[in-house]
Design a protein around this nucleic acid. Sequence first.
DNA 1: CATGAATGAGCCTTCATTCAT
DNA 2: GATGAATGAAGGCTCATTCAT
Lengths: 227, 227, 227, 227
Amino acid sequence: MTEVASPAATRRERERGEAGGATRERNEREILAAAEKIFAAHGYRGASVQAIAEAAGLPKSNVLYYMGSKRGLYVRLLERMMARWNALLDDISVNDDPAEVLEAFIRSKMALSRRHPEGSRLFAAEILAGAPFLQEYLSGELRDWVEERARIFRQWAERGLMDPVDPVWLIFLIWSATQHYADFEAQVLGITGRDELGDADVEQITAFLIRVILKGCGLKPPSAAPG
Amino acid sequence: MTEVASPAATRRERERGEAGGATRERNEREILAAAEKIFAAHGYRGASVQAIAEAAGLPKSNVLYYMGSKRGLYVRLLERMMARWNALLDDISVNDDPAEVLEAFIRSKMALSRRHPEGSRLFAAEILAGAPFLQEYLSGELRDWVEERARIFRQWAERGLMDPVDPVWLIFLIWSATQHYADFEAQVLGITGRDELGDADVEQITAFLIRVILKGCGLKPPSAAPG
Amino acid sequence: MTEVASPAATRRERERGEAGGATRERNEREILAAAEKIFAAHGYRGASVQAIAEAAGLPKSNVLYYMGSKRGLYVRLLERMMARWNALLDDISVNDDPAEVLEAFIRSKMALSRRHPEGSRLFAAEILAGAPFLQEYLSGELRDWVEERARIFRQWAERGLMDPVDPVWLIFLIWSATQHYADFEAQVLGITGRDELGDADVEQITAFLIRVILKGCGLKPPSAAPG
Amino acid sequence: MTEVASPAATRRERERGEAGGATRERNEREILAAAEKIFAAHGYRGASVQAIAEAAGLPKSNVLYYMGSKRGLYVRLLERMMARWNALLDDISVNDDPAEVLEAFIRSKMALSRRHPEGSRLFAAEILAGAPFLQEYLSGELRDWVEERARIFRQWAERGLMDPVDPVWLIFLIWSATQHYADFEAQVLGITGRDELGDADVEQITAFLIRVILKGCGLKPPSAAPG
DNA sequence: CATGAATGAGCCTTCATTCAT
DNA sequence: GATGAATGAAGGCTCATTCAT
């Protein structure tokens, strides 16, 4: 990366002595992060472009210049979160070990919430608002994914590999339990009296959830993590 | 019911030909219901008095006339929800049967979410925003309540009445699992392809949760409801 | 005055055990006093009926019930102040002693401002606003009064009884100097570092003004008050 | 004056075909002038941003865009007026000639009121309201200034250079007399039957005040202007 | 007679967006 | 390419007034 500032270098850029392309990327990244935080906290309507701009350390005009519109920014964030989500929804088959699959499911879902708590809350806010932007995704892609899993869970139950619990309610249970620590973080911290949850806490919670949910479905946890 | 002397009939009232005294009460009720819905969907900032007024079928000024301020209305709704919540937090003792207590806990929590889904979402939105109005409640009253329960759960575990799981994570699990059907209703409906959850569905889900969570903690469900 | 409460006795009335007629009078008096204060401080537009009601210790509706409208109340106050003013504008003749007349003029004007500072400020606020309600009075009655005095002052000057100063500017000088202690009370108190001006202060100021103004017009003060 | 690069041309600007940079300055100037007029006439509370905007020929949002807030605009105007005021409060010493000092004082005060009548009225309205924004200034800076002058006046009196009148009352007399023609302009015009006071009138009034006040304090006017 | 209820209009301020540079 | 300028619309709230009792 050379030190030659491009002719159209911005003030921020010039001050930091950066090259052009990097600035755009960094600005976009900062805007997205800031927006995710604000939208997560206050929802689509409650978020203001001004607040996002301040959190990103940029003028308001820039936010709209980079993102087109408040709506466009919001949609982009939702899509980014859905993409992260889809990335961990790998296929499973009837021949897999139920306990292993469920454990992996819980682990990866927990890790996603842990890595992207703002994204998790953004999604929660969207759902609270009645999912105006995600209606289609929920009753399309996501529904298919759930039904596919459900079919396999049912087959496992039929083969006596696990208790015959309703697989859809089971999926919701896992979702709610894992998202809780991101979505209700303020409540969790308030009640536990901490400033934040550390990695050890999260690992402990994950093990707890795996232990209780698997056992609750008549499965033996494959790894012997204490809950 | 006698003809109680009452405030002046409003225009709405006259148009509908109603009796006098009921108007104020009805208006308040409608405003509270409308506000709970709007605040739940869009959070404190995202909700507008105009939107609440429209949902209540009243002029905007009227909402503020009845409720004083947007903030006051919001606080009143939060307090109402906290009161409902506190109403079902009866005491338990070490001598109680763990399975019965947990079942009752899950049942009552589920019933509360079922009866007041907007209130549950209102609470969720407040937590998403970082609990600006409930900070104190969370780290005060509610924390004490949780710790008290946790102590008893631990004693049960020591006596071998249930698995030695972390009681706080257990409480969070129950909370998240039961609230999920109110808070993420839009998602649940989208994925299950329904218009609403009926009483039968909710009873089925409740039984599922009781079954899985109790079994997951090494308890036998006292009633034999199939999940 | 009997103790029998009239059938239509108000709540306030009943609480104090007063008869009907007295209440109305007292309420009117309190409203007028409160309104004078509020209008004086904030002008016609800046005053609110609510603020007046609060200062009078009555419900807002009552203020309008007694006074008809904000505008009507304001006009009534202006007229009351003009009436007070007119009460001290007695006739003078060329044969009067100039010094005595001017002294009496300064004294009575000062006393009026002293007795009704709110009224003086109310008038000042009206003038600041461009005298929308008093236009006619100023260029009619008051103008005539001024011109009449001016004629006499001029005659005195012609007879060598006083310096040939412009009588209109002289009248304005007296008005401004005497009203100052009411209209700019906040400034006077701030600069002198007092909480209020006492009777002694006012007497001292009056003597000062008489001394300086009379001497400035070539007149000997009739009474020997030190300035 | 060179063609300085400047902010974007506004719609107003384009319509008028003006150059770029001047717009902002002109708008600010017009807003300040309009606001001074409106605040002077109706006080802080009675003034509305809408009215100011209309007087400035701009949309309401624009006024707030330029000035931040109604309060900020008001404070800025007060400070501007105080700055003008301070600009003419030059030091005096015991060795100066009392007559010359007093004449200069009256002249400069009169000129200030003449040049900035709206500012004078703005100040008057602020004082009428109880000086909520100027409390500190009055009992601080201004008080000190008055006391300093008073000390010198007293020394002059002790040396027999002028009558032993109370210097603070004298200062108030000069202030009230000179401000009167700005603050009570509507009254002055109504009574004198004119549309406005011309330079000649003001010069005449100034000479009158100098003559009467100086003579009233036992001083001979240095210049022989007839009142 | 006196007052709480009710409301359209207006208040100051913030909003998302467009535009010119 | 990036940003300050500008603004119509909407935000929460207060206003003076009307009405029914």
